[in-house]
């Protein structure tokens, strides 16, 4: 990749990277807004856990190209490629967030939950002061997995014309120009790495203080 290539495509890479981030970011917001409350609800009604997590699991197994294709003919959604992309990415992001929220809260020592009730915390106080903080690092781990997956899958959204860095990759493949493929793939990978790192820091920040294990 030389200087002239970068000067020719630099601005476009920037625009597409922002588009890529916007698609992923919007999908992550939707997914978190659905999956975190749903995960909390499942801890209250555990008999629904299996079927609900099962459904999100099935969503996860749909090949992404097929998913974009399925959504294309739908009214309103099909009108704008970005809508399709965001819905599809949201569907993919649900499982890791839902599963981790559920597992994170369920893994809290039952004694702590009992104490929280026994000392007279209301359900809401128990959730916000005890359960969510104690499950936070789990939930962030779920968000992290979901984000990295979505940044990857978002490259395929270009197939339905939703834009993003996948656009360069598809163009590169079509014109057998590896520089274009790399111009899409490398920034996409960098975005994933940066998002992973940033969410990893958050995950660590919310780790529950615990004793350091003794050195053997």
């Amino acid at each position: 990749m030389n200087r002239s290539f970068l000067s020719q495509y630099g601005a476009e890479i920037g625009t597409l990277a922002i588009e890529h981030l916007w698609l992923t970011g919007a999908a992550m917001l939707f997914a978190a807004a659905i999956a975190i409350p749903a995960g909390i609800w499942l801890t209250r009604s555990p008999r629904w856990a299996k079927p609900v997590i099962g459904i999100t699991n099935v969503l996860q197994t749909i090949p992404s190209l097929a998913m974009f294709g399925f959504l294309l003919p739908l009214p309103w959604l099909g009108e704008r490629a970005a809508r399709i992309a965001i819905i599809a990415l949201t569907a993919y992001a649900l499982l890791p967030i839902l599963r981790n929220t559920y597992a994170g809260i369920r893994s809290i020592d039952p004694t702590l939950i009992e104490v929280a009730r026994a000392i007279g915390l209301t359900n809401r106080q128990r959730l916000f002061k005890i359960e969510l903080p104690l499950a936070a690092s789990f939930i962030f781990a779920g968000l992290r997995t979901a984000t990295v997956t979505c940044i990857g899958i978002a490259t395929i959204a270009a197939a339905v014309g939703a834009g993003g860095l996948g656009e360069l990759i598809f163009r590169g493949v079509a014109s057998v120009d590896n520089r274009l493929v790399l111009a899409g793939a490398v920034p996409a990978a960098l975005l994933a790495l940066i998002a992973d790192g940033a969410l990893g820091l958050l995950e660590k920040r919310f780790k529950v203080p615990a004793p350091e294990s003794a050195r053997p």
Partner: peptide, 19 residues
């Protein structure tokens, strides 16, 4: 809730919140 706030509760495992 107000019933529980009128009662102190101490258990063997202490149940202190680790965070």
């Amino acid at each position: 809730v107000s019933l529980r706030r009128r009662m102190g509760y101490v258990i063997q495992e202490t149940g202190l919140f680790p965070h």
